[in-house]
Simulated assay, not measured.
Amino acid sequence: MIRRPPTVVCYICGREYGTKSIAIHEPQCLKKWHNENNLLPKELRRPEPKKTEVRSIIAKGFYDLDALNEAAWTSAQSQLVPCNICGRTFLPNRLIVHQRSCKPRVAK
């Protein structure tokens, strides 16, 4: 059985990165997030995502990677905004595109 190397979920975008590259990715991702957030209309701008601290540590002193990833995934999902027509959730810049074609359902 081949073991996959451990990955860490980015708390901003929700993507998985290697344990070495996450430290490089997160500052770049946060900068990109700020640039995109500043381009949004005022009503769609969000507060900066905060990295959640996970205090769950295994007895040998290692972080519980599953708990850390779960907290990061929850943080990334909290960035999604629901469509006021259909209720689906999107990143704010994609919500604008979605709303151009979203139509209310007609009851039959």
Rank of each mutant, 00 (worst) to 15 (best):
S21R: 12
R105K: 12
K108F: 10
K20D: 06
S75K: 01
K50L: 15
C86G: 06
C13G: 14
K50W: 03
L91F: 13
K31T: 15
S78C: 13
G61M: 02
K20M: 09
K31H: 13
A59P: 00
V9S: 06
L39F: 04
A67D: 05
R15L: 12
N37A: 08
V106N: 07
S78D: 14
E16W: 06
V97P: 00
S56P: 00
E70D: 13
A59F: 04
E26N: 09
I12P: 00
L39D: 11
W33F: 14
I57A: 02
A107M: 04
F62K: 02
I24F: 11
T52D: 06
K32V: 09
R4Y: 06
C83K: 02
K42Q: 15
S75R: 01
C29S: 04
R3C: 08
N69V: 05
S75Y: 02
V9C: 07
L95M: 12
E70A: 12
R15N: 15
R46H: 07
C83H: 02
S21T: 15
Q28H: 12
P47D: 14
R3A: 10
H25V: 11
Y11D: 05
S56H: 00
A76N: 00
A72T: 04
R4V: 11
F62T: 02
H98S: 02
L68F: 02
R4L: 15
H98G: 03
R46Y: 01
I22L: 09
K60I: 06
K51T: 04
A23S: 03
W73F: 13
R4P: 02
K108R: 10
R55N: 10
N69L: 08
C29M: 09
C102A: 05
N37R: 11
P27Y: 05
K20L: 08
E48H: 04
D64P: 00
R3E: 11
G61H: 03
A71N: 03
P5S: 08
T74W: 04
P104K: 09
E16K: 14
E48S: 13
L30F: 13
L65Q: 02
L39W: 06
A72Y: 00
A76R: 00
V106D: 05
I22G: 03
G18N: 08
W73N: 11
Y11G: 01
A72P: 01
Y17D: 07
M1G: 09
H34T: 15
C13P: 03
Q77L: 14
L95Q: 06
E16S: 15
R15I: 15
E26M: 12
V97C: 03
K32Q: 13
P6M: 08
E53C: 05
R4F: 10
A59L: 09
P104D: 04
R88Y: 04
Y11E: 02
L80G: 03
F90I: 06
F90Y: 14
Y63E: 08
S75G: 11
P47W: 03
P27H: 07
A23Q: 07
N37E: 09
K31W: 09
L30G: 05
A72D: 01
K51A: 09
T7I: 12
C83Y: 09
